[in-house]
Nucleic acid binder design. Structure first.
Lengths: 253, 253
DNA sequence: GCTTGACTCTGACGTTACGTCAGAGTTGAA
DNA sequence: TTCAACTCTGACGTAACGTCAGAGTCAAGC
C-alpha cells in the first residue's frame, strides 16, 4: 500500500500549485483517483507523470500537445522535440537581438543622460539593422554572408552614420548634376565617389557585389518598411545617370 | 499638407496588422484622427510613434507599460530598459537550459530510437541537474562555483550514472553493516569508499568541500523536490555510522 | 439613383496556463 | 458540536491580438 496524497501535499512534492493540478486534471493530462467526496487522491506513480509534464512544459511545449504526446505515445516524441529545439533556437536569436539592442542603446547614451527619443532611435536603429540583415540574407551566398559578418565588425556606429550621410550627400549631388554630360569630368567624379562607397560595403568582394546586385534587382519585392527607408533614394533618374556615367567611364578607358 | 493614411495603408507602411492598430488605439497608445464617419486617419508623424511602440514591444515590454513610458516621458525610460535587459537575460538562461536539455537527450538516445520514457528521463535529468546547480549555488563561494563549473565538464552522462549507482550501492552496504564496529576493518573500508566518492565530486578542493558541508547542514531548508530525491539517503544511522568510522580512522592514525 | 466591391467600424468570443476569488461541502480534532 | 483547515467547482481576469459577424462608408460604373 503506497501512500496516497491529497492535492496540497502532492503539489508540494512536485513543486507545482494546487490550481495547476486542477488544471492538468481538467485537461486530461493527469487524472487522479477520487475519494467518495470527490477529493483528488494522487499515487506516487502519478509523480513520475507529473514530472514528465513539468519537464515538457519547461521546454515550452503547450499542454495540449503534451497530452497528445502521451496519448499516441509513438515515436512522435523525438520529432516534437526536434521541432521544439528549432523553435527555441529561433526564440533565442530574437532574445539575443533584443538584448543587444538595449546594450547598444545604453552604450550610446551612457555619457550624459540623453532624452528618451535618442535612446529609442538607437534601439530602433539596431533592431532594424538586424532585421534588414536577416531579410537581405536570402540574396547572398553562404560565403558572402560569412564575409559580411566579418565586415560588420568594422562598422562602428560612427562609421555607419558617416557612411549613411555620405550616401545622402552623394545622392543629392548627383540629383543636382542630372543635366550634365555623363561622360564629363563632373559626372565621372560623382561616379568615382559612388564606386568608392559601394566598395566600402562590398570590400571589393565579388560574392558580396553579386548579392547586392541581386537584391537591387528584386526591389519590387522588398518589404514595405525597407521601401520606406529607401524612399529618399528612389529617384530613378539618378540611378540611370550613374549607370551611364559608369558606361562612359569604361568606354574611355 | 502631408498625406493622410487609412488603416490598411498605414498598417502596411509599418508592417503591423490593422487589428493591431485598432488595439493600440483602444489602449490609448496611438490615437489617430478620425473622419466624420469614424474612419481612422493616420499622419506620417504617427509612423514614428508606431515604430517606437513596435521597437519597445520587440524588447518584450508590455503595452501598458509602454503607454506609461510615453505619458510620463521622464527618465523612466533608461531604468525600464535596464530592468528589461535583466529580465531578458534571465529568459535567455532558461532558454539555453531548455535547448541544452533537448540536445543532450538527442545525443543520448540517437543510437537506436529508444522509447519515449528514456528520452524523457534524460531530459528531466538534465533539467533537474541544472536546477540543482542553480539552487545549490548559494552554498558555494564564487571561487568554488568556478571550480565546479570546471569539473562539470568532466562529468559525462555515463560517469554521472556510474557515480549515482556507486552511491546507492555504498549506502546499501553501509546500511547492512550498521551492526559492525565503526573502527573495524569492514567499516574502515566503507569509510574509504565514501571518502573516495566525496572526493570524486570535490576533487579534494577545500572550497568545494566547505560548500558541500554548508549545504548538508542546511538540509531542512532544501526544496521539497530535492528532499524527495534524497529520500533514499535519508537514513540518519548511516550518516552517524560513517562519521564514527571517520573519527575512529583518524584516532588510530 | 442604385448597385457593387472594397474598406472600415465595433463588439464578442477564442487563445494559454493558470491566479484569484466566491460559495459550498468534507474532514479530523477539541 | 463547532471550528479550523482543506477541498471542490465555476466564473472571471490576464496579454496581445486573431477571427468572425453584422453594419455602415466610399467611389465607381450603370
Amino acid at each position: 500500500m503506497t501512500k496516497l496524497y491529497h492535492v496540497q501535499e502532492f503539489s508540494k512534492l512536485a513543486g507545482v500549485t494546487v490550481r495547476a493540478l486542477h488544471h492538468y486534471d481538467r485537461l486530461g493530462l493527469l487524472k487522479p483517483n477520487r475519494t467518495e467526496a470527490g477529493y483528488r487522491l494522487y499515487h506516487l506513480r502519478d509523480l513520475e507523470r507529473l514530472e514528465q509534464i513539468v519537464a515538457l512544459k519547461f521546454l515550452g511545449i503547450p499542454l495540449k500537445q503534451i497530452r497528445r504526446m502521451f496519448q499516441r505515445d509513438s515515436s512522435e516524441m523525438s520529432d516534437s522535440l526536434q521541432m521544439q529545439r528549432r523553435v527555441l533556437e529561433e526564440k533565442r536569436r530574437l532574445l539575443d537581438c533584443a538584448i543587444r539592442a538595449i546594450e547598444e542603446a545604453e552604450k550610446a547614451t551612457a555619457p550624459g543622460n540623453r532624452p528618451d527619443s535618442a535612446i529609442l532611435k538607437k534601439i530602433i536603429e539596431v533592431i532594424e539593422m538586424q532585421d534588414n540583415m536577416d531579410w537581405s540574407k536570402k540574396y547572398y551566398s553562404e560565403e558572402a554572408q560569412a564575409k559580411i559578418e566579418e565586415r560588420k565588425k568594422l562598422w562602428s556606429p560612427e562609421n555607419q552614420e558617416r557612411w549613411s550621410k555620405e550616401w545622402s550627400d552623394l545622392f543629392r549631388d548627383v540629383e543636382a548634376a542630372l543635366g550634365e554630360d555623363p561622360a564629363g569630368a563632373k559626372a565621372q567624379a560623382l561616379a568615382a565617389r559612388w564606386k568608392k562607397l559601394v566598395e566600402g560595403f562590398t570590400g571589393g568582394d565579388p560574392e558580396i557585389t553579386a548579392g547586392l546586385r541581386k537584391m537591387h534587382q528584386d526591389r519590387p519585392n522588398w518589404p514595405a518598411s525597407m521601401q520606406q527607408r529607401m524612399q529618399p533614394f528612389s529617384n530613378k533618374k539618378v540611378w540611370e545617370f550613374i549607370q551611364k556615367a559608369f558606361a562612359a567611364g569604361k568606354a574611355t578607358n
